[in-house]
């Protein structure tokens, strides 16, 4: 379970004058599920594209362990890029021949009731996403990279998508890496959370651990300075203080009602912190 399958070293990507990814260092383990989150424009999609080798870095590298060939990497970008003028069938045949798939499983296609002769450009976003996913599933991928598309598709298809991913994890121990900043139903799939800001990872925690490291205090009054508060949200009735890093001693020292947070709230707190730190250019 704890076998390393990818090593990202000193990954740097520049576009024009802007450094989109800045000297990133991270390791990925076999079978782990990771969510990469952060503000818009923090570089998440760029990082995912580097993992897919669709963007090649200016410095640094993404090294996969030898048993991972490119055929075993599945990538769905936020563009859901495919050859639009191909028909559904042509797309399947093409993908199968390129990735050397002999047994394409048409279950998903059939569930969606897609016509084999319709052109890919006529598919809705949701149909397209699941179609692309079914192509990738037939690759029996070791690594699945998914960019922010989950919440673009309708809830019914979304559930199908998630179930497919769950199947993938349990059957092939696929490493799943998703870029998202909305969580809802996918909350409990990722075991690891990477928070990206300004081209760098500023947090890398296990989602379980996160639950214990960050808490919230809701109070009308100000809380003591010693309590490490990374973000504060005000409303007319009360203030929410997000405490990170939370330690059990704090409960004894400063007795308050420390509330537990969902992943969405945790991320919101961190991102809020980034906005707070941001200077006006």
């Amino acid at each position: 379970m704890n076998k390393q399958i990818a090593e990202v070293e000193k990954l740097t990507v520049r576009i024009g004058k802007k450094t989109v990814l800045n000297d990133i260092q991270v390791q990925l383990q076999k079978g782990e599920s990771v969510v990469i989150t952060g503000r818009n424009g923090s570089g998440k999609s760029t990082f995912l594209r580097c993992l897919a080798e669709v963007i090649l870095p200016d410095q640094g590298s993404v090294e996969y362990s030898p048993e991972i060939s490119r055929e075993k990497i599945g990538f769905i970008s936020d563009q859901i890029s495919l050859f639009e003028n191909f028909t559904v069938k042509q797309g399947i045949d093409f993908h199968s021949s390129v990735f050397r798939i002999t047994d394409f499983d048409p279950t998903l296609i059939n569930e969606l009731k897609l016509n084999l002769n319709q052109k890919i450009k006529t598919l809705s976003a949701g149909e397209r996403t699941l179609y692309h996913l079914s192509l990738i599933l037939s690759q029996k991928p070791q690594i699945l990279l998914v960019d922010e598309i989950i919440h673009v598709i309708d809830p019914f298809l979304r559930e199908k998508f998630l179930e497919a991913i769950i199947d993938l994890i349990s059957q092939l121990q696929t490493t799943v890496i998703m870029v998202n900043h909305t969580f809802s139903e996918i909350e409990k799939i990722p075991e690891r959370v990477l928070l990206m800001e300004n081209g760098q990872f500023i947090m890398d925690e296990k989602s379980e651990a996160l639950g214990t490291k960050i808490k919230k205090i809701v109070s009308e009054k100000k809380i003591p300075e010693e309590i490490p508060c990374i973000f504060r949200k005000e409303s007319s009735f009360y203030q929410e203080y997000f405490i990170y890093p939370f330690k059990e001693e704090l409960r004894k020292k400063f007795p308050h009602d420390y509330k537990d947070l969902s992943l969405t709230e945790i991320i919101k707190a961190f991102i809020g912190d980034q906005y707070a730190k941001k200077r006006i250019p």
Binding site: G31, S33, L162, E163, I166, D167, I169, S170, Q171, E185, I186, E187, K188, I189, P190, E191
Partner: peptide, 15 residues
């Protein structure tokens, strides 16, 4: 089965 429960609960099968 693990897989089924994971799907129903929308959990990671490892969990």
């Amino acid at each position: 089965p693990i897989r089924e429960l994971a799907k129903i609960l929308k959990l990671n099968p490892n969990t």
